[in-house]
Design a binder for these strands. Structure first.
Lengths: 142, 142
DNA sequence: TAGCATATACAATCTAATTGCAAATGCAAA
DNA sequence: TTTGCATTTGCAATTAGATTGTATATGCTA
């Protein structure tokens, strides 16, 4: 898939949730697609700043796209919102956990980490789990 | 137990972690002891403001007492730090997961919740996990 | 391509949280 | 009890993430 068809696909994805496919939004989604882990408001804004996109616009777009269901807005416990694309199939109920390094702040998606069956039952007694977060020190920071 | 002996006990607890038992700290700990759920920086500061305690002092004391191991500083997903007293026995090294209700802020310890064996291996590839957090909406808030 | 609702840039604002520093105070030792 | 001094406090300024107001510009549908 070349860059042009990528952009077309991105525009379609944005329009599919009822938003206009503006350059700032295309750039935002492209950025999130090539990122390997969720990006903060600030990280996205800093990148888009090079394209002349205003910080407030970047923030509004992230929030709007999250509200529209295109992105997931995650709060990992360090007072920063992080955004990642919500691919088809991954609904709201997708529970793939995140690992947050308390030293460097890096975030890793842990697709394959699951709770044991008994654990899921136990946690359901308490409430409906919407997010699983592991915190610790990543290998680079040991 | 009367108020006087309460205060004596509170002062002892503060001194036990190597801090001076100042009026502001005594008031802070007393407040947290009578609270039924963790309090935010701002809530504590607002209460102590009536005693003439400065906001910066309130914030510093909460952080200092948390660093000293007297309080737990929790992040419940709404970008506010919340503090609660860490009673004896609850150490820093308790690795059992916690469930945080994003609505009411209640915290539940999930002693029995575990990761699958494969998940532990997978997460160890990323780093050393020191905390497991489940977030969602508790049964009271459904 | 014209019309208009949506989106943007720019600037101001808000709130949580932190920091610098001189003055005040807890508390341990004399 | 008093003294010495490190710790703590008050006050003010500041940082940083995030949000909001508004006039202008632009996507996109008819």
């Amino acid at each position: 898939m070349n860059a042009r068809s990528d952009i077309k696909e991105i525009k379609n994805a944005i329009r599919a949730v009822g938003l206009r496919a503006t350059p700032a939004r295309v750039a935002t989604l492209r950025l999130l697609r090539q990122a390997t882990s969720p990006m903060t408001h600030g990280e996205v804004a800093a990148e888009l700043d090079e394209n002349g996109v205003d910080k407030a616009t970047a923030f509004r777009n992230l929030n709007d796209m999250a509200d529209a269901g295109l992105l997931r807005r995650a709060e990992l416990g360090d007072h920063l919102y992080r955004f990642e694309e919500l691919r088809d199939g991954e609904g709201e109920h997708d529970l793939h956990p995140h690992f947050l390094c308390v030293d460097c702040g890096s975030v890793t998606c842990l697709e394959e980490v699951k709770l044991t069956v008994g654990s899921r039952k136990a946690s359901e007694q308490v409430g409906e789990v919407s997010e699983i977060l592991l915190r610790g020190r990543c290998n680079n920071c040991q």
